[in-house]
Amino acid sequence: MSPRKRRQRIRVLQYGVLVAAIVAAAAIADWGQIVDVFFNVDAARQTVADGLGSALLHTVTYSLGGFVLAFIFGTILGLMRLSEVGPYRWIARAYVEFFRGLPTLIVFIALSLMPLAFPGMSIPFDPYGTVWLALGIVGAAYVAETVRAGVQAVPRGQVEAARSLGMSSAAATRKVVLPQAFRIMIPPLTNELIILVKDSSLVFAIGLALSDFELTTFGKSEANALANVTPLVVAGLAYLVITLPLSILVQRMEASTAKGR
């Protein structure tokens, strides 16, 4: 059989499997039941009325606050990774490896248990402070690597040009290197923000008051109350309302930087 014929037959087979799977799913599944449990219009209405907007707002607040902290810690850590002072590099490296390797959920739980370890101590703006801190601590590890890669992507000649004009090392970093590095970093940082939006759902593990519910906690509580999965589907769609525009933005930016080169 010629390679071309073989390729054609494989292609026919691939479509055949796909069609068979769809037909089987349609035949086996009880569609009425599925629609009723997952896409129940009344349950969806109820979910929206019970405070979907407020939950969405909380998700945004939790993840944005976490991102701001992650950005600040991460920039410091990223610059430490590039420091000429060995111990700074080692500390930053250890931090990055530690928190990248750890499930975010563990950090959430550990932070919520802090009062056990330090009686009398509490994280301010509870529960916001706890969520922000947990997301910030973990996000910083990723942001640090992004900052390091971004700074290293700025050609060495840029620093040399700045220094040859008499700029101090700090001024060259601030005025010449970081503006260029951040431009390179915007797509990966946006990806990091998307991840934080999703990770903010982990707050459900530490227990929230009704008034602080974010999308996942809210969806789960509604699903329990209505004995229907639809609220979780609605909450999931609400995440997409935040994350899809962001990821489209990243694609656009990556396309435009690719063009600029």
Binding site: P155, G157, Q158, E160, A161, A162, V176, Q180
Partner: peptide, 9 residues
């Protein structure tokens, strides 16, 4: 410099 090293931004 040989490569100009202008600040591209």
């Amino acid at each position: 410099f040989q490569q100009f090293n202008l600040f591209p931004h």
